[in-house]
Design a protein around this nucleic acid. Sequence first.
DNA 1: GTCGATTTGTTCGTATGTATC
DNA 2: TGATACATACGAACAAATCGA
Lengths: 218, 218
Amino acid sequence: MKSNRNYQVQQPPKMYQQVITQLVEYIESEQLSEGSKIPTERNLSELLGVSRSSIREGIRSLELLGYLDSRQGEGTFVSNPPPFLIPPQLLKQQLDHIYLQNYYEVFIMCSKQIVSLSLSQGLTNKELIEKTSVLNFTGDFWSDFPEWIEFIATGLQNPFFLSLWSNNYNVLVENDYFCTLNLKVQFNVFLDCYLERNEARLKELFHGLSKLDKLDPI
Amino acid sequence: MKSNRNYQVQQPPKMYQQVITQLVEYIESEQLSEGSKIPTERNLSELLGVSRSSIREGIRSLELLGYLDSRQGEGTFVSNPPPFLIPPQLLKQQLDHIYLQNYYEVFIMCSKQIVSLSLSQGLTNKELIEKTSVLNFTGDFWSDFPEWIEFIATGLQNPFFLSLWSNNYNVLVENDYFCTLNLKVQFNVFLDCYLERNEARLKELFHGLSKLDKLDPI
DNA sequence: GTCGATTTGTTCGTATGTATC
DNA sequence: TGATACATACGAACAAATCGA
C-alpha cells in the first residue's frame, strides 16, 4: 500500500441521515417524551443549517419508524416507536410461503415463551382459572389461541414479548397464512394443560404446532 | 346521523406514503429483485404525477428501512430489507436499563431456541464436536457465547432466528449492557452440555442466564 | 484523460391547506 | 372573520458523482 487512502466501501453520510442523528440527539438532550412538540421545520432548518427539504426527508423517515408524528397546521410531535418492526409489514408487501413459514416459527417461539413466563409468575391455581375464565372462546383454534396468548401476555413484566408476538401474528394474518395450515389439535388441550401447569405436555403441544404440515392445495 | 360524512379520525394519506405504496407495487409487479435499478427520480415524478421532492421523501424512508439503496450518479436500487428491525438501534438511541433488560430477555429466548433447534437437526455426536471445534474460544463468556450462538445459528434452516438474535445482540453491545451483568457461570459448561445433548441441564443454564443480577455500581 | 450525458444530492422560493386563537 | 403558525407540496436551479464515448 503506497497511500493512506481508505479503501473501505463507505458512502459519505447523507444530509437526511445527519438530520436524523441530530434530531434524536436534540430530543434526548431536551428530554422530550411522547407528545412533545419539536421545533418547526423552518426553525430546524436554521438550527441545523440545512435546507427544509433535507429536514423533511429526515422527519419523514422517522415518521415511518413511528418515532415522530407530524400533523399539518399543528406541528411535529415525538412518538414512541415500537421495540420491534417488521419491514415487509410496514410496506404491506405480499410474502411468499417460505418467508411466512419463517415468521410463523418465530411466532410459535414467542407464544411458547409467553405461556412459560405466565406460568412462572407465581399465580395460584385459582387466580389462573379466574383470569382465563373472562375469555369466551369460539372453538376456532386460530381465533382462540391468539386471543389467549394476547391476554396472558398483557400480564407479563416484559412487554417486548407481546410486541414481537403481535408483529409476527399480524404479518401472518395479513397474508392469510393460518388457513393454509393443517391443524390436528383442539384449543382446549392447550388451555387444560395450562391450567394444570403441565409444562412437559405444553412443550410437546408447541412442538406439534411448529411442525404443522401445509395443507395440500386442492 | 344526518349526513354520510366519515367521522373516523384518520388523516388524509400523505404523498410520500402513497409514493411508498406505489413504489412497492411497482417493484413487485416488475418482479425486481435485489440489485435491480428502479426508474430515476425524475421519471418516477412524471410516472406517478408527483413532485420530485415527494418521490425523494418516499425513497428516503424506504432507504432507512433497507428496502432501497440510492447512490449519487448511479441511481436507486432494490435491496433486501432484514426480516426484523429495532428502531432504537437504527436511530442509535441511548436506552435505559429497563429497556435493555427487555431486549436482553428476548436475546436469551432466541439463544435458547437456536441451541434447541441446532440439537434437533439430526447431526451425529461426532459432527457436533467437529463443527464446534473450529471455533477458538477466549475464556470470556460474553465473547465466547455470542460467537458460539452465531456459529450454530448459521446452520439452521430458518435464518430469521439469527436475524432477530443479531438485532438484539447488537442493541445490547452498543449500549454496553453485558458488562453490567453479574455472571456466575463459565462458558465451558454450556458447551459441554451442548455436546452431551443434555437438554434438561441446558434449560437450567439458560434459565440462570435470564435471571442474572445487575452488578452493583461501585 | 477529457468531455458530455445521466443521475442523485442539496438548496431555495413559492403557493396552498389546515389548525388555533 | 381575520390573523398567525405550521405542515404540505411543487418546481427550478445548481453541485457532485458516475459512466461511457
